[in-house]
Amino acid sequence: MRERSFFQRLFEPPSLTEMAPASKLLTYAILIGWTIVVLFPLYWVLITSFKLPFQVNDGPDFIPFIDYQPSGHAWRYIFVELGNDTLRPYLNSIIIALTSTVLAVIIGSLAAYALVRIQYNVKIGTIAGFIVLLGATVYSINRFGTPWHLTAAIALALFFFFATSFGRYFKRALKNNDILFWIISNRILPPVVAVLPIYLMFQRVGLLDTHVAMIATYMAVNLPIVVWLMRDFFAGIPIDLEESAEIDGASRIRIFATIVLPLARPGLAATFLLVLILAWNEYLLALFISTADAQTMPLLVAAQNATRGPQWWYMSVLIVIMIAPIVLMTILLQKHIARGLMVGAVKG
């Protein structure tokens, strides 16, 4: 073995699988640098939430107990003095995010599974019929003030009648991939385009600023993501298992519930978490649809801007209680999420 000089040892990798000391050092320096970029802002928010106003205003203090004496006054203010004003949006956020996510995952999984395993042939006429009836429903509610429950029920009944009778005479049809592409492409739609009519719609039926409106909207905007992610998980389940169950006498629903869902559990967990995060952090739709009763946390945090100016100690508390549960959950389940994202992106 020939002697290697100091510089050679520094810059040449010792073997195929190891790195040269110099590049190793540089790699760690950059990665640790970015770690600081990621963690420092969070750290700053956390320590700011324990500062007194004068400690913030007198300039940067970095280390609790050394630079300054931490105090729980901001926490007390947010939780005790404001009390319900904090807890109500927090509860709203939990209810709305969880419910809309559960619904989106259920409905989206059903659709994703069906699009993976069942062949479709949707007649364009059926779709056109639905849109016409929807338009007529809205017009009738608007114009004649018919009660919306009743009108919706009649329209749905008419639609099924149409779909099963005249609908079949229209020739052009959409196949699975068309439907899938259409569902996923809904995500391209900027929410601001859709939210104005949704706002008017909920205003019409008197559901503005309610949990129902928020849940329905969130569920709808997150549905494409669920379908997109779950499709790949379902496609990855060996079809033999389902065929075997089918021969043994299981119905589709039974196969889905007892074979497919348990096997797609990692995917479900990842999708659930991603959608939950999106719903939890959502801002724009909440801005339009909720004003007071159904106000969620992002709105409460954003509203601090106007009401309190730069009272950062309070804001920091709100930010901390908003991101803590999600961050903790994510760290616990990050393996699943990473895999979930990967599956979607690789096959997308």
Binding site: E243, I247, G249, S251
Partner: peptide
């Protein structure tokens, strides 16, 4: 439909339910 044929099938992959 398959479920009314009263046949049993053994697959190449065995198709055992892993859970």
């Amino acid at each position: 439909l398959p479920k009314y044929r009263n046949v049993a099938m053994v697959f190449q992959s065995y198709a055992l339910y892993p859970h």
